[in-house]
Write a protein that binds this DNA or RNA. Structure first.
Length: 609
RNA sequence: CGGGGCGUAGCGCAGCUUGGUAGCGCGGAUGCUUUGGGAGCAUUAGGUCGCAGGUUCGAAUCCUGUCGCCCCGACCA
């Protein structure tokens, strides 16, 4: 391809709309253009990158025996009602774009394809003899993100590879899950990305085991916690750890564990309380009130007790709530702090926020309009294991000292509800402490189990002659996100440094001065030879000054540059590697034998081949 | 939705406080010079100042409303 014909429009200034390096660079280098928030045009260079990434994905999926397919993006609501996800995905903060056709039928624009594929599988897969099957597709997905941002990182329209596997039993599912784990590691390595596999929360997709693949980068939206020995890595949403030990409260239990009142005027925060009376935050039990709203109308107040120095992990709490009520009340639609406005709306008295204790009486909810009249009570292990503690007295400006769980007459269900923090000790080896890194989630694999196949009555005939729902797995890769993550991980002050395996072109031939016949002719000849050797090659034939062409070639990130300049008369050219900027002069005649083997090696990315 | 910010030429911005009829850099076009690190000179095209009201002799500038976009939080490949 000739650069003069490439519709290349590069920008000298950073566009105001972009914040992170990869987003700025993709805009500046002419890879993408924004059409609306979260909606981008992939310009010709970007499309080549996306096709290369897709090709790597395809090859590795095919290698595991997966079948490529292409499923409808326009999906009937009825299908989603059968799985029970229509309401959760369209109401409230649902992310599915949905619409009504002229017949008044409800349709959704596919954010994911579990429903469609499960319906198909139920139709086509009749016998255990046909299993296992793994189907995948690469296509545009639609999600009405609350806040699209960072270019392709979180778009409302994006390219995703999604795969769905069907199995006769759980062992077969685990086998495919492991095969996908391996395929994913190869895909990211081949694309030249340093990625970390971490334990993850299953989120709205549901299911049991799940693992995310994170490209480590400063701009990552996720916080991941890893142990230095590499044995443990998890998304913070999911991470577990050992909390620091608590210091026993001096004085022990007071008033038979009911605690002695302590005047604590305006000391509404743990910090103020501790500072005023010489307590440590780990000696205090703090109480958080929330309200959980479920699909079928249930609004359940929740009282969570945590040790004062710990943070609530809302994902863990949401999972506990979904596990308890999902069957009977549908999806958890919202989980929000119980607020003063909420109390007023319910016609209830205001509560002494800042002075709440776990013994808060259910009577404060009596007469509520929508809410259930009793709290669902949980406590974190760290709070449960305190022998004696300080807590709110449930009246303004008063706390209790020397309280015990028995003394307060409380014994709420004990769960892991705390957020693991960097510096915490690890479960597998308390000598290891968690380290924090930021990551961009580029892949996620799930063992779904039988959630969808049961809901949608997708069954197969077993060897014994019975009928059972399929065991299912699903496996996603954000293809467009991966491409941008590659830029985030591979750039410098001059622009993008594409890993060669996914670069739009592998080599750019730059005649320093196209007005010079010798330079132009030699450049043309090398361009032809490289093309004939199967190399993706660009020729910068624009009548620009050399400096402009060098800058552009670096900005757009072509891995190799062949400069045909002053040396052209003697048949000499300069070979420059984008990554690192190393350059060498060599005879034009030996360019192919020097360069082609290196390109072939780099096409394998970080992997051995 | 809550909190912050911004809408002026294709892109990046100034002008607004203190109203006087729109400017700078980059980019585009033409010509000459230059030619290995985003060239110089000259000429030139391009803007209902987001939109709608209002105040005023006069509004990019002041007032009211409205729309859009960006950033921080909840969502996720």
């Amino acid at each position: 391809m000739r650069v003069s014909r490439l519709m290349l429009v590069t920008l000298r200034d950073d566009p105001a709309e972009a914040e992170i390096p990869s987003h700025k660079l993709l805009l500046r280098a002419g890879y993408i253009r924004r059409l609306a928030p979260g909606i981008y045009a992939y310009l010709p260079l970007m499309w080549r990158v996306l096709r290369k990434v897709s090709q790597v994905v395809r090859e590795e999926m095919e290698r595991t025996g997966a079948l490529e397919t292409l499923l409808p993006q326009l999906q009937p609501a009825e299908l989603w009602q059968r799985s029970g996800r229509w309401a959760g995905y369209t109401d409230g903060e649902g992310i599915m774009f949905h619409l009504e056709d002229r017949q008044g039928r409800q349709l959704g624009l596919g954010p994911t394809h579990e429903e469609v594929i499960t319906a198909l599988a139920g139709d086509l897969l009749r016998s255990y003899r046909q299993l296992p099957v793994n189907l995948y597709q690469i296509q545009t997905k639609f999600r009405d993100e609350i806040r699209p941002r960072f270019g392709l990182m979180r778009g409302r329209e994006f390219i995703m590879k999604d795969a769905y596997s069907f199995h006769a039993d759980e062992d077969s599912l685990r086998e495919t899950y492991a095969a996908m784990d391996g395929a994913y590691r190869r895909i990211f390595a081949r694309c030249g990305l340093r990625a970390v596999a971490v334990e993850a929360d299953s989120g709205a997709i549901g299911g049991s085991a799940s693992q995310e693949f994170m490209v480590t980068a400063e701009a990552g939206e996720d916080l991941i916690l890893t142990s230095p020995d590499g044995q443990y890595a998890a998304n913070q949403e999911r991470a577990v750890s050992l909390a620091p030990a608590a210091t026993p409260l001096a004085g022990g239990a007071l008033a038979d564990g009911q605690g002695e009142p302590l005047s604590t005027p305006r000391q509404t925060s743990i910090e103020a309380l501790s500072a005023a009376h010489g307590f440590l935050p780990c000696q205090v039990v703090k109480v958080l009130l929330l309200v959980a709203r479920f699909e079928q109308g249930l609004e359940q107040p929740v009282l969570v007790s945590l040790r004062g120095d710990q943070q609530l992990n809302e994902v863990k709490l949401a999972n506990a709530l979904a596990a308890r009520f999902g069957q009977t009340h549908g999806a958890l639609l919202a989980l929000a702090p119980l607020s003063e406005e909420g109390l007023i709306r319910e016609g209830l008295q205001c509560l002494p926020f800042g002075f709440l204790g776990p013994q808060l009486d259910d009577r404060v909810l009596a007469g509520a309009r929508q809410w259930q009249p009793t709290f669902l009570r949980f406590r974190d292990h760290t709070a449960a294991s305190l022998e004696t503690f300080v807590c709110g007295a449930n009246s303004p400006d008063e706390h209790l000292v020397g309280a015990t769980w028995a003394g307060l007459g409380q014994n709420p269900e004990t769960l892991d509800l705390r957020s693991a923090q960097p510096g915490d000790r690890c479960h597998h080896d308390p000598a290891q402490t968690l380290e924090a890194r930021r990551g961009i989630e580029v892949g996620h694999i799930f063992q779904l189990g039988r959630k969808y196949s049961t809901a949608m009555e997708a069954r197969f005939a077993t060897e014994a002659g019975g009928e059972e729902p399929f065991w299912m797995g699903c496996y996603g890769i954000g293809v467009s996100r991966l491409a941008q993550a590659a830029v985030e991980q591979h750039h410098d002050g001059n622009g993008i440094c594409w890993p060669l395996a996914i670069a739009p072109y592998e080599v750019i031939v730059v005649p320093a001065n196209v007005a010079d016949d010798q330079q132009r002719n030699l450049a043309e000849r090398l361009y032809d030879e490289l093309g004939n050797a199967g190399v993706d090659v660009l020729l910068d034939d624009r009548p620009e000054r050399a400096g402009v062409k060098f800058k552009d070639s670096e900005l757009i990130g072509i891995p190799w540059r062949v400069v045909v300049g002053r040396g052209a008369a003697d048949g000499r050219v300069e070979l420059v590697e984008r990554q690192g900027g190393g350059s060498e002069e060599l005879a034009a005649g030996s360019l192919l034998e020097q360069l082609v083997p290196r390109i072939q090696a780099q096409r394998c990315g970080l992997s051995e081949g």
